[in-house]
């Protein structure tokens, strides 16, 4: 797969403060990457470098094949960027505002009008198109900013906290839009503090702290790497005659009682059926077999606290 975002030792220093240090990252076409990190970790600076607003101090990066320094204007034309704050011109109405940005992106008038209609309808604010932005709620402003970012059908979309000011329904609309974009082959770089959103939308997660990338992988990979193998729990209806060690290796057992067992396995697909078969053969009455949920939040907190 082609990397649409490619960062190589990307570093940004302000005076003597290093905001981003030697960031190496590749994001492929049609991929959603969630970029997580505490406040001040370097997320916004990274996005600003990748959208050719800030120049890297050292290292290099390309977006959609264009160098972020050499081809800065091409990069800006290729990407959509939802900034941390909507930053709208509040005396304008939504349609005029979007038309202004469409024109700046070189879109022909019929095309930008059609696109504006389409996106306003998709986000459920078509009726408010002629109202002044100052009359919009926070969530509606956020939607307009998102539409601005999507207006030019960017190959790569950078979203900084896209649902931060939204009610659950609006947030779902945004998540659906992101999923739809991924389905069409767009690449989405999602900065968020909403770990549920990250887990549900992202193909991979990148975590950054104090400017350095501290983790990168799929949600499952990160959970396995940082929280250990999945924790399985078996509940029995009545006490087992034989000890648990007769059924499962000691090294895997985390906790047990007379009628329950918790164990870890990196190969649940093979370990679990084998164990259940043995228990059935021994006449055990199994009530439930379940995986104890491990959240991305646990991974995040563990990494941030450890680092």
């Amino acid at each position: 797969m082609d990397a649409l975002i490619h960062a190589e030792n990307l570093t940004k220093r302000f005076e003597r403060h290093t905001a981003v240090a030697n960031l190496n990252l590749q994001v492929h076409q049609g991929e959603v990457l969630a970029f997580l990190g505490p406040n001040g970790a370097g997320k916004t600076t990274t996005v600003r470098m990748l959208t050719s607003i800030l120049r890297p101090t050292t290292g290099r990066a390309s977006v959609a094949g264009y160098d972020v320094v050499r081809d800065a204007r091409r990069v800006r034309a290729m990407v959509g960027h939802l900034t941390e704050f909507p930053g709208l011109y509040l005396r304008m109405n939504a349609r005029d505002y979007l038309d202004f940005y469409g024109e700046l992106y070189g879109m022909a008038r019929p095309h930008r009008r059609a696109r504006t209609d389409e996106l306003l309808a998709q986000f459920g604010i078509a009726d408010a198109g002629h109202r002044r932005l100052s009359e919009f709620s926070k969530g509606m402003r956020q939607k307009v900013a998102l539409i601005r970012a999507m207006l030019n059908s960017p190959r790569v979309l950078f979203l900084d906290e896209p649902t931060s000011a939204m009610d659950p329904h609006s947030a779902k609309q945004v998540r659906d839009a992101v999923a739809q974009l991924r389905g069409r082959g767009h690449t989405v770089f999602l900065c968020t503090h909403n770990l549920f959103e990250a887990e549900s939308l992202a193909d991979r997660i990148a975590m950054i702290r104090r400017g350095a990338l501290i983790a990168l992988g799929t949600t499952q990979e990160l959970k396995t790497r940082f929280l250990g193998a999945p924790l399985i729990e078996i509940q029995l209806a009545k006490r087992l005659e034989q000890p648990w060690s007769a059924f499962v290796e000691d090294g895997h057992v985390q906790e047990f009682g007379e009628r329950y067992l918790r164990y870890r396995t990196e190969t649940p697909q093979s370990t679990n059926p084998r164990l259940i078969h043995k228990l059935n053969a021994a006449g055990a009455e199994i009530v439930t077999v379940s995986e104890t949920p491990q959240s991305l939040e646990q991974v995040y907190l563990k990494l941030v606290e450890e680092a």
Binding site: R73, N152, S153, R155
Partner: peptide, 21 residues
């Protein structure tokens, strides 16, 4: 959204010349 992803680079190319006149 009826936009094909192929239109995005095409748009960008159309809006851009090697040297911004």
């Amino acid at each position: 959204m009826s936009e094909s992803i192929l239109t995005a680079p095409a748009l960008a190319q159309a809006a851009m010349s090697p040297h911004h006149a």
